[in-house]
Design a protein around this nucleic acid. Structure first.
Length: 312
RNA sequence: AGGCCAGUAGCUCGAACUGGUAGAGCAUCGGUCUCCAAAACCGAGGGUUGGGGGUUCGAAUCCCUCCUGGCCUG
């Protein structure tokens, strides 16, 4: 049994800070379970821990991809398992930190062992979507993978495309892949810590943080990214705010508009995260209003769970 | 001071001509989630139509009056 600590919660609650504290106190190493902090160059807007903060503590799955490279829950799960073993071999404590519920579920509960999708298939499907429309693709799905289709909304472009790409790429419908035993879901025991804030305070904090990102030179960062040839359609540009700032740099919207939209999008994101984590059973929640006090509480809690410094 | 225009959901706006009992987007809230998830979706609540009075079977709509904002004239 491999014990790991997991820190979850909506964005802007202080997960990074808490993780660093715990890592410092318990000889921990941090595994990032966030979908966008993996991209090099996307630093300020993804709230990546600074190099100073990362100095004494080993970080995994940060800055591992170029902005053009795709990333996925399955890939995360594989890489995170490797990282956990690596950390264990040094007798350190793995601390998984991030706000993506699906990624964590893939790691902790496993996910069906689907092969990688051929990028050409994915490209073709996008074309089909543009040329034929979603309705047509959904009808196709009803024919070839009825089981998946009935569980999907015909308007859910992302999942309709996913189901079709799996079938076209593997020759087997998604629904039968899902019947396969998930990999992972294994010899891991996790202590899951959730950070939470009252909604209105969380929203204030999001606005303040976006403001702070601007002060830290976010706009320059985006400028450099674009100058280096990264395109707005590349995967890393899914990170909140980058498209908005890019749009401002092209003169389409004002800076205030770009930041306002970013704050709004971040709120929506935080709300979705809360919806996801709320129903997860194994999370122990801590109020993140006073982070210092929260850290003390969390530390005491971990001790009671049998986690101690240098002995996990 | 006089004239004109406007006031409808938290915000931006619809509801024609010819009165028929107020809708949409965004926001907010709730939810879904097997690999692009910082994504992609689904649903819900919310209005004494600026106040008051009148006409009418019936008023956001017509009339009177008051309030507020804007523009024009002096």
């Amino acid at each position: 049994m491999v014990p790991v600590v997991v820190i979850v919660g909506p964005t802007a609650t202080g997960k990074t800070h808490v993780a660093l504290e715990i890592a410092g106190a318990c000889r921990g190493e941090i595994i990032n379970s966030d979908a966008l902090q993996v991209y090099r160059g996307f630093d300020i807007g993804t709230a990546k821990p600074s190099s100073l903060e990362r100095a004494g503590i080993r970080h995994h799955l940060v800055d591992i991809l170029d902005p053009q490279e795709p990333y996925s829950a399955g890939q995360f799960a594989r890489l995170a398992r490797q990282a956990i073993e690596d950390i264990r071999s040094r007798d350190h404590l793995p601390i998984i930190v991030g706000g993506s519920g699906l990624y964590l579920r893939a790691l902790l509960q496993g996910i069906s062992p689907l092969p990688e999708i051929d990028p050409a298939v994915r490209r073709q499907l996008r074309e089909d979507l543009e040329r034929q429309g979603l309705e047509r693709l959904y009808k196709e799905l009803q024919k070839v993978d009825h089981l998946t289709a009935i569980n999907l909304h015909s308007t859910d472009s992302q999942r309709v495309l996913r189901a079709l790409e799996v079938l076209r790429s593997t020759g087997k419908p998604l629904s039968s892949w899902i019947r396969e035993k998930p990999f992972g879901a294994h010899e891991m025991v996790s202590c899951q810590i959730g950070l939470t804030l009252p909604r209105s305070i969380l929203y204030d904090r999001i606005a303040a943080r976006v403001g702070a990102m601007k002060e830290q030179g976010w706009l320059t960062e985006v400028e450099q990214i674009l100058a280096s040839g990264v395109r707005l359609s590349d995967p890393a540009f899914q990170a909140l705010g980058y498209r908005q700032l890019g749009s401002h740099l092209r003169g389409e919207i004002s800076l205030d508009e770009a930041l306002g939209e970013t704050i709004q999008a971040t709120r929506r994101f935080a709300k979705r995260q809360m919806t996801w984590f709320r129903k997860e059973q194994d999370i122990t929640w801590f109020d993140a209003l006073e982070l210092r006090a929260s850290v003390d509480e969390i530390m005491a809690f971990l001790l009671r769970q049998g986690y101690r410094s240098g002995n996990v």
